[in-house]
């Protein structure tokens, strides 16, 4: 993110009431639209705008082995497997490429904070609406650097 956005985020960070307000505004919208689970590090744009943290196992990198044949969840048979929905929506929106992204472990400190502010402050990776992955995004951070070097060399 740019220096300007970092300064804006910094201003919010210094004023707890403001950042709580930003969080509240964000969570109200996202709870209503996406049943957001408030992890503070949004991956909606990678998952065809379907929140993967709704999975009982909080799987961020794809479905566990227990999806039933009809696409329902092994833990709650009355619900759909969230990754089944993510796959179906990604297919329809032609965003399958985005599913290849490697998601690093969740930073639990960011729970119940505004993902938008975290993005402006550079604490999380920026969300992009593009349907394509940026080069290297399918690798974990260290491998991505190695691959970059390889392609340069």
């Amino acid at each position: 993110m740019s220096r300007l956005s970092e300064r804006v985020a910094g201003f919010f960070d210094r004023h707890p009431l403001l950042s709580k307000g930003a969080w509240l505004a964000e969570i109200i919208v996202k709870k209503a639209l996406f049943r957001c689970q408030d992890c503070g590090q949004c991956v909606l744009s990678y998952n065809a705008f379907t929140c993967c943290m709704r999975c009982p196992k909080e799987m961020r990198n794809g479905p566990c082995g227990g999806t039933r044949e009809d696409g329902h969840c092994e833990v709650y048979p009355e619900r759909y497997c969230i990754w089944w929905l993510i796959y179906e929506r990604s297919r329809k929106l032609r965003r399958l490429d985005k599913l290849r992204k490697f998601h690093i472990p969740v930073d639990r400190r960011l729970q119940h904070t505004s993902a938008w502010l975290n993005m402006f402050a550079g604490r999380i990776e920026p969300l992009t609406l593009s349907a394509r992955l940026k080069p290297g995004e399918e690798y974990p951070p260290r491998r991505a650097k190695e691959e970059e070097k390889k392609s340069e060399g």
Partner: peptide
Amino acid sequence: CFDLDSVQ
């Protein structure tokens, strides 16, 4: 717990 997932 499910802190990490298997890929992580």
